[in-house]
């Protein structure tokens, strides 16, 4: 006996197996990201007034990534429609676009991560704080060079949106004046912890989705010749996952970049 309803819909439920499967999987994903968003809300609400960072992100890159994902959502849908109307060439084009857009997203994300990890907050022995992008941090030299600014208080570093026209200059700091130095990694504060965890998990989803899409675009296309309907279903299911990942980003973008 073969497993029924792998291709055609079961009459009383109206869906085929994989569609039930993917929606069940997405439900669990809703709970996964739901728990993380709950953590976000609790930690943000619990942060003392004025200490939640604003404007710490590169809004240009963030917006670009948002548009990239939105566009890839369209192309993945187009790929499915192309399968539906049995035009394999169109499918290959659109699915290739999705794959490229997904990889573009990941590349931009890596640039952003690099920017954060290369940004340092340096506490000086005289009580001042130097904050900026690291330019030279060679252990052999007895100084470091950052492109940034001095701040008198920690509080000055939180809300960058409120501070227009920040002047950034190259600052050379002798190592003897450095009390401690920390990059803007997830260890720096709760906002960055949330940022790296949420976007990192999301990027893993993008990576997973790209692998599936790449498989369907590459070796998985064999199925098209033998069972195009089933192949179309696979494209639809992978598309649903991709849209969900887009959906998560739609909420990640405002809570991490805009507010």
């Amino acid at each position: 006996m073969d497993i029924p309803y792998t291709v055609e819909a079961r009459p009383d439920t109206g869906v085929y197996n994989a569609k039930v499967g993917i929606w069940l999987f997405l439900s669990s994903e809703v709970m996964l990201f739901g728990a993380l968003f709950s953590a976000y809300v609790l930690i943000r609400v619990g942060t003392p007034a004025g200490e939640w960072p604003h404007g710490w992100q590169n809004l240009t890159l963030g917006t670009l990534n948002t548009v990239v994902l939105a566009l890839s959502a369209i192309t993945t849908l187009m790929a499915w429609v192309a399968c539906k109307i049995r035009q394999f060439g169109k499918f290959q084009f659109f699915h290739g676009c999705t794959l490229l857009l997904g990889l573009t997203f990941l590349c931009i994300k890596m640039v952003e991560y690099h920017q954060h990890l290369n940004h340092y907050e340096i506490h000086l022995t005289d009580g001042r704080i130097a904050d900026g992008d690291m330019l030279q941090n060679n252990p052999k030299q007895d100084y470091v060079v950052i492109k940034g600014r001095y701040a008198a208080y920690e509080e000055d570093l939180y809300d960058l949106r409120a501070q227009k026209n920040l002047k950034e200059t190259e600052i050379k700091i002798p190592r003897s004046q450095i009390k401690d130095m920390q990059s803007y990694g997830p260890w720096h504060n709760d906002y960055l912890a949330l940022y790296f965890t949420l976007t990192g998990l999301h990027a893993l989803h993008i990576l997973g989705g790209s692998i599936v899409i790449g498989y369907l675009w590459g070796p998985g296309r064999r199925l098209w010749k033998t069972d195009p309907e089933r192949f179309t279903n696979r494209v639809e299911v992978s598309g649903l996952f991709w849209h969900f990942v887009d959906l998560v980003w739609i909420f990640l973008f405002p809570v991490l970049y805009l507010t």
Binding site: T13, G14, V15, K19, V20, W23, L24, S27, V30, M31
Partner: peptide
């Protein structure tokens, strides 16, 4: 389909 709505309703 109704099945999917039910599922998502529970999840929500």
């Amino acid at each position: 389909k109704k099945l999917i709505y039910t599922l998502l309703g529970f999840t929500a």
